[in-house]
Design a protein around this nucleic acid. Sequence first.
DNA 1: AAACTAGTTGCAAAGAGTTGCACAAACCAT
DNA 2: ATGGTTTGTGCAACTCTTTGCAACTAGTTT
Lengths: 140, 140
Amino acid sequence: MNQSRDIVSKLSERGYRLTPQRMMILSAIKNSNDHTSAEEIYTQVAAKYPHINISTVYRTLELLKKLGLVTETNLGEGRVRYHPADKGHHHHLVCQECGTIIDLDESVLSSLKSALLQEYKFSADLRHLAIFGRCVKCSK
Amino acid sequence: MNQSRDIVSKLSERGYRLTPQRMMILSAIKNSNDHTSAEEIYTQVAAKYPHINISTVYRTLELLKKLGLVTETNLGEGRVRYHPADKGHHHHLVCQECGTIIDLDESVLSSLKSALLQEYKFSADLRHLAIFGRCVKCSK
DNA sequence: AAACTAGTTGCAAAGAGTTGCACAAACCAT
DNA sequence: ATGGTTTGTGCAACTCTTTGCAACTAGTTT
């Protein structure tokens, strides 16, 4: 894949620079499992380049989010998780009682998305949502 | 209204104590506009009782949330906002470009709620959602 | 190749929210 | 009223994330 090529060109097209830090962070995201956290990325990069600063990781994630290359989601653990956008969109049902997480296909929210577009002319970003509530076992 | 009466009884019914701090926080929530923040509540209570601690405010809000008396929502300002549940449920469309917020009636998400219930047996808590995206002017 | 300039980084400090713990006090029973 | 138990509070420390600022550097221009 030349996924990294794509990212590189997306960056330079828009006037963003390709710094060593960014390249290391990008490869850390690719190497990691889905739903990485900023801390995990930082640890991985710091193993090879201890001088890196966590705020650079946060700023890079912010940038990638803006470019639509990663999606972020808050599963209620007190930290945000990131997911490469090109690995497919999906959602999560999070049980606030027992913590169970049910994965949801993107399509479940597509009718909501089109309803918001038609009725409110609002283009909703529904790429990686966490919906809280109670699962079967706990809703009683 | 005897809304506070209701809250008081809801608390004692379940074995929670009615402390001065909690009563002050409750009245601060009532006096404030909708969508208050923890900080605003804290400031309001501290005006009369400077000894109060912000963590008490957070813990009280957490409790009220659990009892279903307030709903919380993150409008993307870097702080969470709280809304008395009995003042009606609604949602927000937040434009990430210009910051415009469109208010949404609760009903818009009711079909999603029932779909999740039927297909996943998941009882989603969709009482005060913020959906991010782009408004008409900015989606181009 | 040297200079330039705007985007980037590291650092330190701040902000929002959470947590552990010892002390305080609300509520119940006597 | 008094005492006991259990919940609640204040405090301080901590986690996660953001931000201001000065120094730095990637990519462009000369």
